[in-house]
Amino acid sequence: MNLDPNIVKILYILLIVPFALVMEGIRRKAVARMQNRIGPPITQPIYDILKLFQKKKSDTLAQENSFFKVVPFLTFCVAFSFFLFIPLSFISFKHDFIFLIYLLVLESALFVLAGFAGNNPYSAIASMRELILMVSYEMIFTIIILTLFVYEEVLMVSEFGAMFMLLKLPIAFICFIAVMAIEIRITPYDTAAAPTEVLEGVETEYSGKGLAFLHISDALKLTFFAVLFIYFFFGQFSLPWMLLFVPLAVVFFSFVQATTGRYRVDQTFKRLTFFLILILIEFVRIKFITW
């Protein structure tokens, strides 16, 4: 069956958000199963989002702040644009890895801004924690990506073509999992969104549409990291294979989430420093020793 490439592109753009939400549903379901519960149906996040769009907003003092209204939508836009830069054959711009890093930092920065706009001490603390961690993890993430591309000696993301990188760069793989845990806010490093310490974190003051956009961008980020995880460390598969492997990666993430607790901010920071040293060693190593 040969579809018109334009139709495929339109379908792809339309189905990104539902697909990401189903991935979030799979994560919740998998965590629930690991905790001996039945868990929600995997389409649950879609219901949640639709409900949030139907709900009214609650009155907060923060509403006077224009950032409060705009930032969730901006976060969603940036998170959505991740998927326009996934190097799949039919929808890809030519861009280098620096652009990828730039997008991820932008999303995190907007998330921090969303917290400060919330006008709530708890979301301010959550944002502050995210900022503190950003200093560290963005650097590690940059060096991981740098290691990968230096190893492959390419510059463009779409030119990256190596199978089973995790065997060649095992330390980078471990560091990637740690950074990913912070980025998609799962334990052990979800200090920025710790529900018992800072309530709902950045989202505390949001309700209705704003909350829906924040939730969607969370789900998009989760899916995006699942794609990156496979693309960089396992292999560059075509779209149908990706549809199979991405849920598996999400199940792996939920396994990480279910089997760990949460570290404190300073402990997280200490461990990140350790990872930074590790990845630097890896970066230097590929120059001399390879297998």
């Binding site: 919740r28 629930a32 519960r37 039945i38 868990g39 929600p40 149906p41 649950q44 219901y47 949640d48 609650s58 907060t60 529900p195 309530l199 709902e200 989202e203 505390t204 003051e205 949001y206 309700s207």
Partner: peptide
């Protein structure tokens, strides 16, 4: 487990 009905325990009343 009431999460099977989609219910979630939320910390923030909003």
């Amino acid at each position: 487990d009431i999460e099977r009905f989609g219910a979630q325990w939320k910390m923030s009343p909003r």
